[in-house]
């Protein structure tokens, strides 16, 4: 029996368990969707952008990182029986939680109504990171739908993304909260790229104005460039789509809000195409930082 082979196998297993998956995986680019304040339409945006990105880039993995209060599954008309907590308790593999949808989305549900999940212990985060590292990596991109606010867990997930999309409302409180989140993020990862999508605007001008306000403050105090992705107009059909539990791009693709989302999705897809699959992506960063 060869001792060196044994040692090699254990090292291999360590990698397999997620300690250094870079040699095994090339990760697709990742997009974190965030907001400083709840109710800005973050999940709505995530799901609809994911639908569009799946058309443009291939299957998209959506990780509902709003652990404990996730509702991406609702917007996709899914009812998962198991969620991240089942994985953390060792009852299922993370693979078993992933729900594939006909829209090209593989959803990893985050669990709903479970306060415990919103503050995972370090050991649990590490276990989750390892589980994510073992998921298949051949996706078009990964969308991380994070929780609102600046909790350490939320910031950890966002820091690990290649690109972060801030979803804001044009109101002052939403903008200041988004800026606070941005400041948190930039302090820990200055090189991250951040985009802004202004939701529920009266017109395009209001969206650009809202972006201008936050971008100006970010430039002045953080010396940080904040890119404008677009704006989504207030549209009553959004509510209908939410009630029907169907993504807007599927339910009413020709409405103004859907068109705006599609345009934003096209710009986003172009950016993500520019990011090559990397050995140092979301999962790897999460493993290192969790």
């Amino acid at each position: 029996m060869d001792g060196a082979s044994l040692a090699g196998t254990f090292r291999f297993l360590d990698r397999l368990r997620g300690l250094a998956p870079g040699r095994l995986l090339r990760e697709p680019p990742s997009l974190g969707v965030a907001s400083g304040k709840g109710g800005t339409g973050k999940t709505f945006t995530s799901v609809n952008l994911a639908v569009h990105l799946a058309r443009e880039l291939g299957r998209v993995q959506v990780f509902d990182a709003d652990l404990g209060l996730g509702n991406s599954h609702m917007l996709l008309g899914l009812r998962p029986e198991r969620h991240v907590q089942h994985f953390l308790r060792g009852e299922v593999a993370l693979d078993d939680l992933v729900l594939a949808t006909p829209q090209g989305i593989d959803l990893l549900p985050g669990g709903s109504g479970l306060s415990r999940l919103s503050q995972l212990a370090n050991e649990e985060l590490r276990k989750l990171a390892r589980g994510l590292a073992t998921l298949p990596g051949n996706r078009g991109c990964m969308v991380v739908d994070s929780a609102a606010g600046i909790s350490p867990q939320t910031m950890l997930f966002l820091r690990c993304c290649d690109l972060v999309l801030l979803v804001v409302h044009p109101e002052l409180s939403s903008l200041t909260d988004a800026y606070a989140l941005l400041k948190c993020l930039v302090l820990r990862r200055p090189a991250i790229r951040v985009l802004v999508l202004v939701n529920r605007v009266r017109d395009e001008a209001e969206g650009r104005e809202a972006h201008g306000r936050i971008a100006e403050v970010a430039d002045r105090f953080l010396r940080f460039p904040l890119h404008y992705l677009g704006s989504v107009p207030e549209d009553p059909v959004v509510r209908d789509a939410l009630v029907a539990k169907v993504p807007l791009l599927i339910a009413s693709p020709e409405t103004p809000a859907a068109r705006a989302l599609r345009e934003a999705g096209e710009r986003l897809a172009a950016m993500l195409r520019g990011l090559e699959p990397s050995r140092h992506g979301f999962r790897r960063r999460l493993l290192e930082q969790a």
Binding site: M155, T176, A180, F221
Partner: peptide, 14 residues
């Protein structure tokens, strides 16, 4: 991670 602690100047800017 305890919070960004926005300065008065930043809030005034908004």
């Amino acid at each position: 991670d305890l919070g960004p602690k926005l300065s008065d100047e930043e809030i005034d800017a908004f």
